[in-house]
Design a protein around this nucleic acid. Structure first.
Lengths: 116, 116
DNA sequence: AAGGATCGTTACGGCAGCGGATTGTTCCCG
DNA sequence: CGGGAACAATCCGCTGCCGTAACGATCCTT
């Protein structure tokens, strides 16, 4: 069965979540960066710059820059595709998995505390 | 009863949501801006710059700038507090209400489409 | 072997956000 | 009534992201 949620609950959820995120001085990713990160971790590999760009409807430089930033944070890593050396394969990292695990738990906790 | 949600569902929810947001070329607000907007619309007035800043754990200039930006988008408006003219009262707008209504509906739609 | 196509990255100029310090009003209290 | 406190806005230099346009490397086709 699907998750039932009323609009007012949805907004409260977003509110609590955004407050947690803003306070947390975990480096707050931009919406685009988060979208890329989630795509890499939730969708089936392999992931390329080109694929992610078209998936999100943004330009390739946006993806490259986001990978630069998140790479510096060790949330993702890059590797040349040896089969086709033009491609770059985006890989998951332990730190990235932990980051998302924590994020998921935060959402669950906030949702649980939501008034019915 | 509380909203029950598994971590994997939570991440999928965020994923779909971020994709919708990124594609939508609705001006995507930064996490901080969204947090301020939601606070203004979900918490009981009156809202002041100082109050919002301490609520979010950010500095006052951050709030002022966010209000500048969102004011230009007509998502909020400002008014001097006549009782204490040092204060500025942040007010809701019709456009802001519509923006959040739409956002809430998006969350609901995404949640409903989530695999159980 | 060569031309063009594809891929990711980088360069560029511009815009917006940041923290910290300062300013100008307005209020409060001794 | 005068000096300090409180409040929001502004200024400063900096950093990071944006879109467009190039670029180098690699592949593919003929």
């Amino acid at each position: 069965m699907a998750i039932e949620l009323r609009p007012s609950q949805a907004l409260r959820l977003l509110h609590e979540l955004s407050l947690v995120q803003v306070r947390d001085d975990a480096p707050d990713l931009s919406p685009r960066q988060l979208a890329i990160l989630l795509s890499v971790y939730l969708e089936t590999p392999p992931h390329t710059v080109r694929g992610l760009a078209s998936r999100l409807g943004v330009t390739k430089p946006v993806v490259t820059r986001a990978l630069d930033t998140m790479g510096a944070l060790h949330l993702v890593s890059r590797r040349r595709d040896e089969a086709d050396r033009r491609n770059v394969i985006i890989q998951r990292t332990v730190e990235g998995a932990l980051y998302l695990e924590k994020l998921g738990d935060q959402v669950v906790a906030v949702a649980r505390a939501l008034p019915r």
